[in-house]
């Protein structure tokens, strides 16, 4: 297992006391595609980011167990964490505009990521960068390597981000809403690309999204989170057989192109869903 998480809790200190955003999440990730779905504030991003301990400074994290490939993340030193972050586990974020350095060319950024983990000469790194850009299916990698982030389209930027994350050959890829800033046509391409790369390289994938149909389409297993807790785990293929009223509600309130509904059904939130078990 790549990731083992047992009873993860993430809290934030506020003037009114500690408010818990993640309340006892347990999960494992192997060489598979795991989807985590939830609405804003469900704690899905915090759960995934706590694996890399990439949380805001005001957050407090506790867990009975939080391991990446047997390494205890919570007690690990910053140095040991750095060997995981970006090297053994990559993070793809929502908007490439904000995660790329605006004053460095795409190629230089990938080359830098490659050199930081693999060493080697500048020329080797540049070659590797172009090779990686080709792997994320950019048609003219040598030209794109010389472009600055503002010269890239959204989809292209996200491909560069992915190429950067692939540079050190990670074992786990965490994709946090990787396509929600992109157009539908580009979104499908990027997800197919991620899917292929994961299969080819034998990586684990955690796909975090608010889009339940999208996630179930691309993952093996889906965790549905509500108010800091996993309310249901389903095999992606069995999504339409989901039992929890929240999951059902999420599916039913979507407008459908194929089956028109005069009125959309509205999710009625049951306080019992967020009550401690």
């Amino acid at each position: 297992m790549l990731v083992r998480m047992d009873n993860l809790r993430v809290g934030f200190r506020t003037p009114q006391g500690v408010s818990e955003a993640v309340r006892g999440v347990s999960l494992t990730v192997g060489q598979e595609k795991l989807g985590i779905v939830g609405e804003s504030g469900s704690g899905k991003s915090l759960t995934a980011r706590s694996i890399l301990r990439l949380l805001p400074g005001s957050a407090t994290v506790t867990a009975d167990k939080l391991e990446f490939d047997g390494i205890d993340v919570l007690s690990a030193r910053e140095g040991a964490l750095r060997r995981i972050r970006g090297k053994r586990a990559g993070l793809i974020m929502q908007d490439p505009k904000y995660s790329l350095n605006p004053v460095m060319t795409a190629g230089a950024q990938i080359a830098e990521a490659w050199r930081a983990h693999k060493g080697g000469s500048r020329r080797q790194a540049t070659k590797a960068a172009i090779d990686l850009l080709a792997q994320v299916r950019i048609r003219d990698p040598a030209r794109v390597a010389g472009l600055y982030p503002h010269e890239l389209s959204g989809g292209m930027g996200q491909r560069v981000m992915i190429a950067m994350m692939l540079a050190p050959d990670p074992e786990l890829l965490i994709a946090d809403e990787p396509t929600s800033a992109l157009d539908a046509t580009v979104q499908a391409d990027i997800l197919r690309l991620i899917e292929d790369l994961v299969a080819k390289r034998g990586m684990g994938l955690m796909l975090i999204s608010h889009d339940l149909p999208l996630v179930s389409h691309f993952c093996d297993r889906v965790l549905v989170m509500y108010a800091g807790r996993v309310v249901e785990e389903v095999k992606a293929a069995d999504l339409h057989r989901a039992k929890h009223p929240y999951t059902r509600g999420l599916l039913e309130c979507l407008p459908s192109l194929v089956k028109p509904k005069p009125q959309l059904s509205v999710l009625k939130r049951d306080p019992a869903w967020s009550a401690p078990q």
Binding site: E39, S40, H210, D211, L212, G249, L250, C253, L254, P255, Q263, L264, S265, V266, L267
Partner: peptide, 10 residues
């Protein structure tokens, strides 16, 4: 969020 989207569309 999709649940809120449904409410606003209604």
């Amino acid at each position: 969020d999709v649940s809120v989207q449904a409410e606003v569309l209604n």
